[in-house]
Nucleic acid binder design. Structure first.
Lengths: 240, 240
DNA sequence: GCAAAAGTGTTAATCTTACACCCATGC
DNA sequence: GCATGGGTGTAAGATTAACACTTTTGC
């Protein structure tokens, strides 16, 4: 029979490999003025002077991978109960000029009108998705990948409500869907389709201060809002 | 103006973080006797004595992340033009007893009748998906996640043909879909649906050596077979 | 009363599902 | 000739897409 290695022995023999940094990068989406936005920071690396990059950080040695994007979000925006989804891990050798860094990309949906949102760093700001041409590192590819995943998810999963205030009209919701999907939708069909999903509760309240006939207000059915720690990770913990 | 850091300076200041190992784990699917199989290896760690684990390896310091699963596949099976898809990255602190290892999971589809397939290690063997209860590490969760992603992909993308020989009958194809999806399909509807996708070419050949009326043979339309380096990575390289 | 957006229903087309009989081959 | 699976079509139901008019409010 083969001699079994202890974990300790294996660790020593593989020491050379503990030589790669792991980071997370967050594509933090918000929605304002009928446009989908993403939070970016001015790159502080000479190599990318003048370019913006996604918000990210190295994963701490004592930190679960999935905790890192929540920490980044909290440190940068003050927000804690955010929606996060892991998208893809990028690991080309030369993707980072500082050394070997493999990064796991997450997208996040935040309400930019939340009272808890506070961005103190002057180099951090919201940018229209449609206006972004280049980013530092491989962050444009990461952004595009995350946007595509967002587009694939929104019709099947009630996640876009994380971008809206508690109460919203169907028109606001439709504008948001159009901004995310980048296309126009038929109003009547959209309303039927959304109502049929049974995600919404009619609040029997009306919009106020609109210069036209006010629309009804809705909210997301309670129990459907997904935010906080990722579900896949919860399963993982339970299984261990 | 803020003083910009050079990449070299940043690397030194972050040296503590280059302390996490990165691995890849491959869920290598194949199909035999009307069952979906996965390639597993007997764990050589004391902590998991008697359990099987997925095939994986640490990512080399000079190796693109996406190259690692191809290398693992090649080293373990001799196969080079395989279909691979990245699924998810798992990074709980304690997921690996040897130390801090973050792993990116891939699934792969291989034809177990390929002449190039050779598995020399006696501890490596095929296992029926349906029979697997426990695996070493968090590999059962990784397997389940990959199987779910495979199930979500198969109806929209022509990938399952990587599990079949060059020529196959519609019955063989349907059996394969049923094994992957874990459910029965109506034969007439399945045939209409597959034919409508325009993925197949009728070879005007018949099955041989079957103890019943032989079925027509088909092959995948050329140009639709996806294997080799991952497309997302190719885009990434072009953009750099 | 006019501008602006809210609200609402029907029809046609498409897609999906369920279902049963005759046919070709090996034995 | 019989057992086995191959091959095929239709009708009902569900879903999706296209499309226009009336209503309510602020000004």
């Amino acid at each position: 029979m083969l001699k079994l290695k202890t974990a300790a022995v294996e660790k020593i023999s593989h020491q050379d490999y503990f030589n790669i940094a792991v980071s997370v990068d967050c594509v933090i989406f918000s929605y304002q003025n009928k446009s989908l936005k993403v939070l970016l920071i001015k790159s502080d690396l000479e190599d990318f002077q003048g370019l913006y990059s996604l918000l990210g950080d190295l994963v701490g040695p004592e930190e679960d991978l999935e905790d890192a994007p929540y920490r980044v979000l909290y440190e940068r925006t003050g927000l804690q109960d955010v929606y996060l989804e892991q998208v893809h891990t990028f690991g080309n050798i030369n993707r980072h000029p500082s050394g070997r860094v493999i990064t796991t990309a997450y997208f996040s949906l935040v309400n930019c009108k939340s009272s808890k949102l506070q961005i103190s760093d002057n180099d951090v700001s919201w940018h229209n998705i449609a206006d972004i041409r280049r980013l530092a590192f491989d962050h444009k590819i990461i952004l595009d990948t995350c946007l595509q995943q967002l587009q694939e998810r929104v019709m099947e999963h009630p996640i876009v409500f994380n971008l809206l205030p508690e109460k919203f009209s169907l028109r606001e919701l439709q504008d948001l869907y159009e901004a995310i999907l980048g296309l126009g939708l038929d109003r009547r069909n959209f309303r039927k389709r959304i109502i049929a999903k049974d995600w919404l509760v009619d609040l029997n309240e009306m919009e106020e201060d609109v210069p036209h006939r006010p629309g009804k207000l809705y909210k997301l059915r309670s129990g459907l809002r997904k935010s906080g720690r990722l579900s896949i990770q919860v399963e993982q913990k339970l299984a261990v």
